[in-house]
């Protein structure tokens, strides 16, 4: 047995000792597979080590999620708010509403960020010889922001995050309507 395979085995045996109780069988399974990895390959020992490293990340992620859950419970009991488990019991409508609100929040945060950056953008434009006007503001700040919001919404939609996408689009639409009304009244 080469050094990498020995290291892999030691790593998984160490993981077996510190893995969460309910995942210990899985770590045992990962360890057992080591005996069959790369038997037909010249680099089998290294394959075994990479296998063990991958398994290590799995166990660490499981541990992290357990700690996060524990921390969440502690915070929930401390502040008297609902735990994550209770949150997961929210009905589908509630989750969708939460998603839409999250989308609105993200788009608003993005808009506020751009609002604070507008002077920087205006200075940059001035440096290249473009005077500050309503149209430069629209073309350099609002239009790119709208495009970013729409593209982000499309990406989120494709990733099955439709409620967040709807929230972002909604905010983008309101922002666009505001611009149109402002331009019309000028």
């Amino acid at each position: 047995m080469g050094a990498p395979r020995t290291l892999a085995e030691r790593l998984l045996r160490a993981l077996l000792r510190c893995a969460p109780e309910e995942r210990r069988a899985w770590v045992e399974a990962m360890l057992r597979e080591l005996d069959f990895i790369g038997l037909d390959s010249r680099h089998g020992d290294w394959a075994a080590l990479f296998w063990a490293l991958g398994c290590t990340t799995v166990v660490f992620r499981e541990c992290l999620s357990e700690w996060a859950e524990w921390l969440g419970k502690q915070c929930a009991s401390l502040f008297g708010i609902r735990s994550t488990r209770e949150e997961s019991k929210m009905n589908a409508t509630g989750k969708k509403t939460l998603g839409v609100l999250a989308g609105v929040g993200i788009a608003l945060a993005f808009g506020v960020g751009l609002f604070f950056l507008r002077n920087v953008i205006a200075d940059v434009l001035l440096a290249v010889g473009i005077q500050k006007s309503m149209w430069t503001h629209i073309l350099s700040v609002i239009l790119p922001a709208e495009i970013i919001v729409v593209v982000a919404a499309i990406v989120l939609w494709r990733k099955q995050r439709a409620p967040i996408a709807i929230g972002m689009l909604l905010t983008g639409f309101v922002m666009a309507a505001h611009v149109v009304v402002t331009v019309a009244t000028h």
């Binding site: 995942r23 899985w26 399974a29 990962m30 597979e33 069959f36 990895i37 990479f50 296998w51 063990a52 490293l53 991958g54 398994c55 990340t57 799995v58 992620r61 499981e62």
Partner: peptide, 22 residues
């Protein structure tokens, strides 16, 4: 099916395969 055989047939590394199996 075994974990390593699944890893070879799907091309997934252990770090991806096992969380999904779990």
């Amino acid at each position: 099916k075994y974990g390593y055989d699944l890893s070879r047939s799907t091309g997934l590394k252990s770090g991806t395969l096992y969380p999904l199996l779990m």
